[in-house]
Nucleic acid binder design. Structure first.
Length: 539
RNA sequence: GCCCUUGUAGUUCAAUGGAUAGAACAGGGGACUUCUAAUCCCCUAAUGUAGGUUCGAUUCCUACCGAGGGCACCA
């Protein structure tokens, strides 16, 4: 009971196979069935028999031993077994959607726990440098992290989304920023930064008066402006990106709580560090890193690596996350081995840290790469892009492409296409779906056996696949699968809508079809809420 | 130089080692007196090159060619 169709087929198959892996796939071509397996070809190897013969054997066996679950089982060369699910079973699945509503698609908690699949997961993303506006790259990582968080939570994990605030006064970046802020440098200098500086003119003046030590002044001035920038970014993330973080974790706090010193001492005690050329090095090369890394510079200040290690240890050891997902831009990928090695040295198993690398986004306009804006210091600020195309389109667009591939963001296309963007396509389907209820009166109790038209069945089939899609996306940390599913669902719904009518049909048919529409709306709402996209009231 | 990622229709993206490589946009042709035509239906069109592994390769391996990124006591 309560199994996904795919798993039910597996169970029937196991009666025949007993040993070995079973794979069930969904063929692209309808003529190869609703579901399909290559089991016979796999068995052919070990049994040294003709795969077609095994396939026929499987088909006969399952047809007899599956209680009418399948309406047809076929074999195809060179040894596929193809399954057609009986209409009755599909109609039953529809009843399940209606009964479970927004819970449909979630795996059973007990099952999840038994399979050791229920985890406490942290996802850290965006965590932008406090030196300027958020970039489009931040957006790509941000939407990925947010959606992945929604997905894993829906699947049943305990999920926390976190933003690491780079606000440490000891950081070289903050000092470098401070140097610019007090007029002694040009790093990170943009018109945007100048605006921030002039807004804080008087506070900066009094800092200059109060603090004579240059290094200290840089740190304080940098931190002051960095905080302004971070606050602005934070507001933007909440209001415009509509991403809700559970925590905003301050790097500076790690220093305040003396955790950085403490880790350094631990590392010394464990004999994992040494001094060379006036700096303190971590023996990361003994744990899989290509070379050792500096923890404390010649100047006596820590590198980014040291507090970051403290931060990650805190995630694993103090806050006890089973898995931690870090989403980084491609320019950070070289940093991974060092962090992993550091964690390994401190007894955190490597595979508990998932680093997702998001490839950089290149902006293209008029067929050429877009030039960086002097005023803002970025190619295009994420905010500008969102103002231009809207949050739903921006979000959908980024989620559509595999984060690991390089993405050319064509500005002309994004604008031009905005009316024909796939996001409108799926939103329109959902709007049509919701619209039907408004115009329909009372109907008798539905009898699902009326749902046997081709487009009825096609729609039920895709609705019933939702739990499988959720599982696949969650297990692979891949929200992109949901994007494709949503487009597919919308297509099937539009098709149903064009082919079959509800108003004006006989009451029995209208009632059954209305239930199908109701179930569709359940799935639309569910998938949209994971993707973080609105269903408009009207279009 | 070394390391990571990547190369699929005109364009943007798909394809746990499986069947005739899927969609969308663009292009061509059709469909509303109807629950919203922002829709539906049909057509045209692609695996960078050369080898290897096997029943089977877009997928795995090797070389080459092209693109992006990294190789800090920046983050």
């Amino acid at each position: 009971m309560n199994l996904m169709i795919k798993d039910q087929i597996k169970i029937y198959l196991q009666k025949y196979v007993k040993d070995g892996q079973i794979e069930i796939s969904v063929p692209e071509n309808e003529k190869f069935g609703h579901y399909s397996t290559n089991t016979a070809m796999r068995l052919a190897k070990t049994r040294r028999e003709n795969p077609m013969k095994i396939a026929k054997d499987i088909a006969d066996f399952l047809m007899k031993n599956s209680n009418g679950y399948f309406s047809k089982i076929d074999v195809a060369s060179p040894g596929f077994v193809n399954f057609w699910i009986s209409e009755k079973i599909l109609q039953k699945e529809l009843a399940k959607i209606i009964a479970e509503k927004s819970k449909y698609g979630k795996p059973n908690k007990k099952t999840l726990r038994q399979a050791q699949g229920l985890k406490k997961i942290q996802i850290e993303f965006i965590s932008a440098n406090p030196t300027g506006l958020l970039t489009i790259g931040n957006g790509r990582g941000g939407f990925l992290g947010d959606t992945l968080g929604n997905l894993l939570k829906f699947y049943g994990h305990k999920v926390e989304k976190e933003y690491y605030v780079n606000d440490a006064k000891a950081s070289a970046q903050i000092k470098e920023l401070g140097k610019t802020v007090v007029g002694e440098g040009t790093s990170y200098l943009t018109e945007y930064l100048e605006e921030k500086i002039s807004a804080k003119k008087s506070a900066l003046r009094s800092l200059k008066k109060k603090i004579k030590n240059k290094e200290k002044l840089y740190a304080e001035a940098g931190a002051l402006i960095a905080k302004e920038i971070q606050n602005e970014n934070k507001k933007f993330i909440k209001k415009k990106l509509k991403i809700k973080f559970n925590n905003w974790f301050s790097e500076e706090n790690l220093y305040k709580k003396k955790l950085v010193d403490k880790l350094l001492k631990t590392l010394k005690d464990k004999n994992l560090v040494y001094k060379k050329e006036g700096a303190i090095w971590f023996k990361t090369s003994e744990f899989g890193d290509p070379e050792d890394r500096v923890l404390i510079r010649q100047t006596g200040e820590p590198t980014y690596f040291l507090p970051d290690l403290v931060y990650h240890l805190d995630k694993f050891k103090n806050r006890k996350f089973d898995d931690v997902v870090d989403i980084w831009g491609a320019d950070h990928h070289g940093y991974g081995p060092r962090l992993r090695a550091g964690l390994q040295a401190l007894d955190v198993k490597k595979d508990r840290l998932h680093i997702m690398i998001v490839q950089l986004v290149r902006l293209v306009k008029g067929g050429e790469e877009f030039k960086m804006s002097k005023r803002k210091g970025v190619f295009v600020a994420l905010e500008d892009l969102i103002d231009e195309v809207g949050i739903d389109v921006a979000r959908f667009f980024f989620l559509m492409s595999n984060p690991e591939t390089h993405m050319d963001f064509d500005m002309d296309l994004a604008k031009e296409k905005s009316l024909k963007n796939p996001v409108y396509y799926i939103q329109y389907a959902a709007v049509r779906c919701a619209g039907i209820f408004k115009k329909i009166g009372k109907l008798p109790k539905p009898d699902y056996s009326f749902l046997s038209a081709e487009s009825d069945i096609a729609l039920i089939k895709i609705l019933a696949r939702y739990p499988e899609i959720i599982e696949e996306a969650a297990k692979n940390y891949n929200p992109q699968i949901l994007i494709r599913y949503s487009m597919n669902l919308a297509k099937k719904f539009h098709n149903f809508y064009e082919n079959e009518r509800i108003l004006g049909e006989k009451k029995e048919i209208a009632s059954a079809r209305l239930t199908l529409v109701k179930a569709s709306l359940v799935i639309f709402k569910s998938v949209f809420s994971i993707l973080g996209i609105d269903i408009p009231k009207k279009m």
